[in-house]
Computed example of a mutant assay.
Amino acid sequence: MTTPSGPGQDPAPGTPGTLGSLRAERRRLLDLGYRMLGSVQDAEDVVQETYARWYALSEEEQRAIEVPLAWLTRVASRICLDHLASARVRRERYTGEWLPEPVRHGATWISTGHEGGDDPADRITLDESVGMGMLVVLDSITPAERVAFVLHDIFGMPFTEIAETVGRTPAACRQLASSARRRLAHRRPGGSTAQGHRQVVSAFREACETGDLDALVALLDPDVESRNDGGGKVRAALRPVVGRDKVARFVLGLMRREPEMELVEDDVNGTPGMSVRIAGTTFAVLALDVHDGLITDLWMVTNPDKLHAWTDHETP
């Protein structure tokens, strides 16, 4: 994998342009935080904390840092590692299934105290490393494996630097990334072209809108799994629904309960998906994985706290 947002050329340490250069690398840090944590708000909090630690340094300490971006990346990664460890405890109290927060093409993060929400530095870089399926699998590995894999395979950081972040030897970090890579290779979703994926999404939408059970079943893998994240804020399935017949009937049941429901083909984490609306307001976002023309995974996010990329831009 390639780095989604490579480092710029920092001025020499202590020169007047250094702080501006650090702000210009904000997008890279947001990209890092989101891939580490799968949450827009958590990624934003990590970046805010990282900059706060930079500002807390004396001018002399700042001048002594040879590569400010590398320093910021290490600090942000350590904060992410701590957050991942505590997140496992919080997830035990989470109501139902937890899914990563979906992002939309062109959506921006609005920073506390940061003017200019349309600044490209506030937009996440969308590539294969931010796909919903990838983030779901990343959430299943250990925090140390995730940090080592993201830093090395996605952001191109050498293991000697990763070792400083996770507090292990470079050899141990290499093993962590290798272990994560093996698990990802075994479980990583995906496997269709963009055009093929879009065609399946369109057929899925049509089958749902027409209530055609047979057509819907024909689009689903025999072992398809549907997961719904309502976060205890809205009604949602608390456990995965597994199997093409059960998933098809579950989806059509939702359509029948909400006759005003509108399915809109939309970009979800850089991949064709759907937003689900009632009276013009998005109340769910749907991401799908497709293998050989069949849907293998269906992720529905209905927790309103995770839909700001859609709802913040809608007019009542």
Rank of each mutant, 00 (worst) to 15 (best):
T3N: 09
P4W: 02
S5D: 05
P7T: 01
P7K: 12
P7C: 04
Q9D: 08
Q9R: 12
P11C: 09
P13T: 12
G14D: 03
T15K: 14
T15E: 14
T18F: 05
T18L: 13
G20E: 08
L22E: 09
R23A: 05
R23F: 07
A24W: 03
E25C: 06
R26A: 02
R28N: 11
L29R: 10
L30A: 13
L30T: 13
D31Q: 14
G33I: 00
Y34D: 05
R35S: 11
S39G: 06
E44D: 05
E49F: 08
R53K: 06
R53G: 02
Y55A: 08
L57I: 00
R63D: 14
W71Q: 04
T73R: 04
T73I: 08
S77K: 10
I79M: 07
R88W: 03
V89K: 12
R90C: 04
R90M: 06
Y94L: 05
T95R: 12
T95A: 15
G96Y: 03
G96I: 04
W98P: 05
L99I: 11
V103M: 07
V103A: 03
H105W: 09
G106T: 00
W109S: 11
I110H: 09
G113H: 12
H114E: 08
E115Q: 14
G116I: 06
D119H: 13
P120R: 14
D122M: 06
I124C: 00
L126G: 10
E128P: 02
V130M: 12
M132Y: 02
V136D: 05
V137H: 03
L138M: 10
I141N: 03
I141L: 05
I141K: 06
R146N: 06
A148Q: 02
F149R: 00
H152C: 02
H152D: 01
P158V: 00
T160D: 11
E161Q: 14
I162Y: 10
A163W: 11
T165F: 01
T169P: 12
A171L: 03
A172T: 12
A172E: 07
Q175L: 04
A180G: 08
R181W: 02
R183L: 07
L184S: 03
H186M: 04
H186A: 07
P189I: 06
G190W: 07
Q195H: 11
G196T: 05
H197L: 04
Q199R: 15
V201H: 10
V201A: 14
S202T: 15
E206L: 10
A207Q: 05
C208D: 02
C208W: 01
T210L: 06
D212N: 15
D212Y: 01
L216A: 08
L216T: 01
L220R: 00
V224I: 14
S226L: 10
G231Y: 10
R235P: 13
A237Q: 07
L238H: 07
V242L: 04
D245K: 04
K246S: 06
V247T: 05
A248V: 01
R249I: 03
G253S: 08
R256V: 14
E260F: 01
E260T: 12
M261I: 10
E262M: 05
G273I: 09
F283W: 15
A284N: 11
L286E: 10
L286T: 13
A287D: 15
L288R: 15
V290H: 08
V290Q: 06
H291N: 14
I295T: 13
I295H: 09
V301R: 01
N303C: 06
N303D: 15
H308N: 11
E314Y: 07
